[in-house]
Structures are given as structure tokens and as C-alpha cells.
């Protein structure tokens, strides 16, 4: 029986791979549900924060915070959110493509670029590109705590305060639904001004202790909440992308097993036929 044993071993090995991919699919599916819950739980804070900052943009503070002042752009910063692990289809590649396209635009204008990476994939990609990475966060896990992100955000905010960068972008995957994730670039600094006519009358907050301190604290938290939200959203995207990738891998393994099974059956049939004809012709010769 030609190659029968080899084919059987091959089928076994593909079956083992299929077991792994289908297990990964199920793990990703359950993690995705949790990630989505976390995404929803983080939403009220982001909304409240946005409305406070919205009020603030319409107030008439005696003090203009640097985050609200548009400057001439000499250098830009990107916070790129990616996954820590691979096997999730084109998820990270889509983000990198969007970032690179946007970076190239700035580069053509003679503007330099600084990067802060969140997630191992972004770190290795931008390190290989020789980008100027000024902040980095790896291994944030499936359930990052908001305060774990403080450091990498602060690096960028400090660079903005010191005038090293004049604009800050946040790049992440937007969770549209389980099947669709969309790479998304958002300008976070300077704060894009919103116009709300209903709040235009002249008023201002009482600031305790003073406007500068309060705004520093508030806007720092605002940016952190944006970044936290995007990281949580990116995890949900990662899980759903992995789920889909692993599902198609499992299907592929099934196809391969079917094909191999067919080849194996044919080979077995051929061997039996050959054996019979050998016996028959042997008997006829006697």
C-alpha cells in the first residue's frame, strides 16, 4: 500500500492542528464577549469626560491651556495601539497602513514624526522601520487597567508641553461589529474645538485652586481616557479578528483532511485491487 502510512500520519497531524485552531477560536469568542463588556463599561466615563471638556471649550476661561492652542506643526506624534499577539488576520497591518500613509504625508511636508507604541506588534514594526519611538508599552494583557497606560501617555503629553511635538494622533481599530474592524486615526491634540450655540452665553467655572492646575489635571485625564478607550476597543477588535481567522483556519484544516482522506481511500482501494489481481493471477498460473 503506497504511502498509506504517510497519509494517515499527515491526516493525524492536520487533525491536531484543527483541534488547536478551533480551541483558539472558542477562546477568542469568549474573550471577545468580555472585551466588549469592558468596552461598554468604559463608555460612561468617556462620555462624561467628553461632555465636561465640551462645556469647558464653550466656557470663557481667563487661562488658555496649551492643549487648546493650535500651533505651527514642526513635529507630530502618534500613539499607535496594536495587539500583543499575532494570528489575527490583517488587523495590525490595516492600522500600520493607515499610520504609514498619514506619516508619509507629514514626511513629504518635511515634518518629523515621533511614535509611542502600545502592544508588541507595533513596537517591533516601528523599531524595524527605524522610527523614533519615544514611549512603549508591552504585554498589557486582556484586561488592562487604566493606570497602566499613564506612563506612555505622559511621555507624549510631556513632549507636547515642551513643544517637541505640535500635534498628537491616536491610531487604533474601531470596533464596528464582530466581522468588521476599521483602522481609525484621531487627532487628540490640540483639542479639536466644538461649536455648540446653546452654550455660547458668557460663563465660566469656579476653578479650585486655579484654572491652570485644574485644566492640567482634567485634560491629562481626558487624553488618558481616550487612550484607554481605544486600547479596550482594540482588544475587542483583536479578539473578533482572531476568532474569524481561527474559524477560517479550522475550515481550511477540514478541507485538507477531506482531501487527504480521499487520497488515502483511493490508495487503499488501489492496493486491495492490486492484491486481488495478484492472487487471482497467481491462482491461474498454478
Amino acid at each position: 500500500m503506497a504511502g498509506g502510512k504517510e497519509i494517515r500520519t499527515k491526516i493525524e497531524s492536520v487533525k491536531n492542528t484543527q483541534k488547536i485552531t478551533s480551541a483558539m477560536e472558542m477562546v477568542a469568542a469568549s474573550k471577545m464577549r468580555k472585551a466588549k463588556d469592558r468596552m461598554d463599561a468604559a463608555r460612561p466615563y468617556a462620555e462624561k469626560m467628553r461632555s465636561v471638556v465640551g462645556h469647558l471649550a464653550n466656557a470663557h476661561p481667563e487661562y488658555k491651556h496649551p492643549f487648546m492652542i493650535e500651533r505651527e506643526v514642526k513635529r507630530v506624534g502618534y500613539i499607535v495601539v496594536s495587539s500583543d499577539r499575532g494570528l489575527c488576520g490583517g488587523l495590525n497591518i490595516n492600522v500600520f497602513k493607515a499610520v504609514i500613509a498619514s506619516m508619509k504625508e507629514w514626511d513629504d511636508k518635511g515634518v518629523d514624526v515621533d511614535v509611542c507604541t502600545i502592544g508588541k506588534k507595533a513596537a517591533s514594526f516601528f523599531a524595524r522601520l527605524n522610527s523614533n519611538i519615544i514611549g512603549k508599552l508591552d504585554d498589557y494583557g486582556d484586561a488592562p487597567r487604566a493606570h497602566e497606560l499613564i506612563g506612555s501617555v505622559k511621555v507624549m503629553l510631556d513632549a507636547y508641553y515642551e513643544g517637541k511635538i505640535d500635534r498628537l494622533y491616536l491610531v487604533f481599530n474601531d470596533f464596528v461589529n464582530t466581522m468588521t474592524q476599521q483602522a481609525h486615526i484621531e487627532q487628540i491634540l490640540p483639542l479639536p474645538a466644538e461649536d455648540d450655540e446653546s452654550l455660547k452665553h458668557h460663563w465660566d467655572y469656579i476653578y479650585e485652586p486655579d484654572a491652570k492646575n485644574v485644566l492640567d489635571e482634567l485634560l491629562m485625564r481626558y487624553v488618558e481616557s481616550l487612550v484607554y478607550q481605544s486600547v479596550v476597543e482594540n482588544i475587542a477588535c483583536e479578539m473578533s479578528a482572531r476568532m474569524i481567522a481561527m474559524k477560517s483556519a479550522t475550515d481550511n484544516a477540514g478541507d485538507i483532511i477531506d482531501e487527504l482522506q480521499l487520497i488515502y481511500n483511493k490508495a487503499r482501494q488501489a492496493a486491495i485491487t492490486q492484491e486481488i489481481s495478484e492472487i487471482v493471477s497467481g491462482a491461474a498460473a498454478v
Binding site: 522601520l129 519611538i133 506612563g151 506612555s152
Partner: peptide, 23 residues
């Protein structure tokens, strides 16, 4: 301290100095 940590991490990633990026 957290910011310094993030910076240190970044520096370890950039063993060879940041040159020109070929977009």
C-alpha cells in the same frame, strides 16, 4: 516614574539609533 518606564522600554527597542524612515 511610569513615564520614565515607558521611555526606558522605548529606548531598549531602539538599539540602533533612529535614522531616516523609508516610508
Amino acid at each position: 516614574a511610569a513615564a520614565l518606564e515607558a521611555q526606558k522600554q522605548a529606548e531598549s527597542a531602539l538599539k540602533d539609533s533612529a535614522g531616516k524612515v523609508d516610508y
